[in-house]
Design a binder for these strands. Sequence first.
DNA 1: AGCGTAGGGATTGTTGAACAATCCTGCAAG
DNA 2: CTTGCAGGATTGTTCAACAATCCCTACGCT
Lengths: 248, 248
Amino acid sequence: MTTGGEETGRQAWLRTVAADVARLDRSSSAERAADILRRSITEGALPPGAQLSEVELTEVLEVSRNTLREAFRLLTHEGLLVYKLHRGVFVPELDEHDVIDLYRLRRVLEVDVVRGLADRDPELPAGRLEPLHDDVEAAEAAASADRWPAVGTANMRFHQHLIGLADSARMDAMTGRLLAELRLLFHVIATPRELHEPYIERNRGLFELLEARKYEQAAADLHQYLLDSEQALIAAFRDKGLRGPATT
Amino acid sequence: MTTGGEETGRQAWLRTVAADVARLDRSSSAERAADILRRSITEGALPPGAQLSEVELTEVLEVSRNTLREAFRLLTHEGLLVYKLHRGVFVPELDEHDVIDLYRLRRVLEVDVVRGLADRDPELPAGRLEPLHDDVEAAEAAASADRWPAVGTANMRFHQHLIGLADSARMDAMTGRLLAELRLLFHVIATPRELHEPYIERNRGLFELLEARKYEQAAADLHQYLLDSEQALIAAFRDKGLRGPATT
DNA sequence: AGCGTAGGGATTGTTGAACAATCCTGCAAG
DNA sequence: CTTGCAGGATTGTTCAACAATCCCTACGCT
């Protein structure tokens, strides 16, 4: 069960080191600034529609305007910012149409990944589902502690790891962007509990189906899962949208 | 056959104008430089593996280094360039693994789009398939004139327009990137005719199936189409890959 | 009063030069 | 043959300035 040979073990070690180096080696200023902004956006500190002033942020982040613009570009291509020519960068305001678009893609990608697992079942290493298991338990723990944003994060990670089973770098990248945009939508909704609670259990069910190698049923469940989630999000979105942004 | 109603005609006209305005209005320097570089890459003037020197390109493109870097960022996120920290930007060198990855995504997206057309068949306007028809004829015309790169371009546009039928902005964007990367692969291959020729006819067949509203069969055909194309590309890729880059 | 228009102020787009950090090359020493 | 160390070239980042554009307000006209 311990992934076998010495050569593969050494390769895995080298790959781990390489990943760490790449992480420490990152383009510093620009990406570091992007990291801070990304967190601010995904955690809701910067609400949708907000404008990000250049001069203001250069002082806060202590980077030059050019570097800050490069950070903007990074986040723009993650879908977390939008450029309006000669007007600045803004946190995008997504609507129902975007929800439908995002979920259509989620269904296509995630369901295909799960369904595709059947073909390559034998070559799947043993511990491959471990990250999914961790995410399920993290979500349950966070729910017990009433930390619903953390539940949302664990849910995101679950689906990211699910896509990761396909070993497709481009699917991973796309999913990263999709989930980032989804986070944008979550922060418009002020009822994280009702939104996330049902999916803790469904994630566990999905995991158990995968573990039992019932891929076809897992795919079907996931499809319905995502349809339900889409409907719930649209419903919650309409409620909040009508009540307006006034929460004080 | 003249797309019918007055209101839809006017909307289409407005949309066309808006697109033109947006095209002229673009961020000028950075995006203009990116356009030139994009063309150079997709047309093969800049071969995979080539490094793009900053000082050199600032003189040719007549833009500042900072602006050029912004252009680099744009193309990086389209997959047409890769950054190597402190070493510069390069045209990426894709391999068989990337072919498999790209085609997996193409299959998932394109087949789903075609299959999804069945559900929304009634709401599809009449002239919606027109761009596809134009692309088919463009490919046939280019083939008659032995202009095989043009055949490849028409083929790309066909698939881009196919995805466009889904009215999903994110699918459009993803497809744009996927096809751009695919172009990168085509230029490693020196036999464009054998590669593109079979698909002229298959594109027409696909178009006719769509026109006849036989979506399910169209989806099945497209699936096999993409599998064949993948195999052909891998085969041609191996031939060239073994012979090495020496062509002088 | 209503409407189109010009001006001021603020913000973004772009440039050029400068400095620090890093990489590559070649050469010398072990 | 490998190791260590300059030297030169390239990239990463900053800064200050100017040009272009947008927003808002106030003015003048019908």
